[in-house]
């Protein structure tokens, strides 16, 4: 898991400036219940709760996306079941079960 105190409000990176009246969407991140809004991307939803999407495979740092237009591939996240998702171009959906680290059987 990435970052401490991730259930605390404000633990994420996202600062919302507009469009805050949207319907809530619930999803799970590393087993914990999290909330996002309809129309959020997976990247927005995750970074509203924690400061990074995943760990870098080649360095110590976390990764939180970079280009937001599908070009850098920095933002792939794991799901408990199913394929990895490109977080900046995938909308969040009710009930998604996301992971900031590879599920056990991958390592």
């Amino acid at each position: 898991m990435i970052g401490a105190g991730k259930d605390a409000p404000g633990a994420g990176r996202v600062v919302r400036l507009a469009e805050q009246g949207r319907a809530p969407v619930r999803f799970r991140l590393d087993g914990a219940d999290c909330a996002a809004m309809e129309g959020d991307t997976v990247l927005t939803a995750v970074l509203a709760s924690v400061p990074a999407l995943r760990r870098s495979e080649f360095g110590p740092e976390g990764r939180a996306g970079f280009c937001l237009m599908g070009a850098c591939q920095d933002c792939w996240v794991w799901q408990e079941v199913g394929p990895r998702l490109r977080a900046c171009s995938t909308p969040i959906a009710e009930g998604m079960k996301l992971l900031t680290e590879a599920p056990g059987d991958w390592t």
């Binding site: 600062v15 507009a18 805050q20 959020d40």
Partner: peptide
């Protein structure tokens, strides 16, 4: 894009 398409920033 974060501002335009999602109405947010990251700091």
């Amino acid at each position: 894009i974060a501002l335009k398409a999602q109405g947010l920033t990251f700091g």
